[in-house]
């Protein structure tokens, strides 16, 4: 993975596969505190203590096609190599929250990359079964995109319609530019 946004895309996949109907993604950039925090919280089926303890082991996976799962281990590696950490809390029947903290200015901290591409892809592929809230904070500014609000506008037209997906992607790009003060910023 070359961008944190690709890790986010991959980890969110776990949430939707766990039967979540709501996934809340928060990207919190605080350059002044030299900290970047990414939180992915879902209301999926959750994990018991045993699976939770084993989940960072690449030889743990719930899929049956093979015996290796690299999503969480790669994300953890990305956080730790920037002087940060990854933590997971989970409760069966309630949901799972993955929190990754990064050293913002650490030379080994990967760029966030194309967040608009990631979020629009998640919505495109999973809107039929799941709602998404994407909140992006930069310093004291922030914006939020909530698929439940978009659904109200679109009525019975699916959010996965290519033209709608394209609108969502461009909308996020514009909001990010505004959030970063009109600059493309290092993360884009």
């Amino acid at each position: 993975m070359k961008e944190l946004s690709l890790n986010i895309l991959d980890i969110t996949e776990n949430s939707t596969r766990a039967g979540a109907t709501l996934v809340e993604l928060t990207v919190d950039e605080q350059p002044a505190d030299d900290r970047l925090t990414i939180t992915i919280a879902d209301n999926g089926r959750g994990m018991d203590v045993e699976l939770l303890a084993a989940v960072c082991d690449p030889f743990t996976t719930t899929r049956t096609t093979r015996k290796i799962g690299l999503g969480i281990p790669l994300f953890k590696e990305a956080a730790e190599s920037s002087g940060g950490s990854l933590s997971i809390s989970s409760e069966p029947g309630v949901g799972t929250t993955v929190t990754a903290v990064f050293g913002y200015s650490h030379i080994d901290r990967m760029p966030l990359g194309d967040m608009a591409g990631t979020v629009s892809t998640i919505i495109q592929c999973h809107e039929a079964e799941c709602d998404f809230v994407y909140r992006h904070v930069f310093g004291r500014g922030e914006f939020t995109l909530d698929t439940r609000e978009l659904r109200e506008v679109m009525e019975d037209v699916p959010l996965s319609t290519p033209e709608v997906v394209f609108w969502i992607k461009e909308n996020i790009e514009e909001n990010l530019r505004e959030l970063y003060g009109g600059n493309k910023y290092e993360n884009n």
Partner: peptide, 21 residues
């Protein structure tokens, strides 16, 4: 779009094809 596909560059493919459509 599993971990393997994403790491190999699947997201830009999906984005580009959707945009073209």
């Amino acid at each position: 779009m599993a971990t393997c596909g994403i790491a190999a560059g699947a997201r830009p493919v999906l984005n580009a094809m959707s945009e073209e459509v």
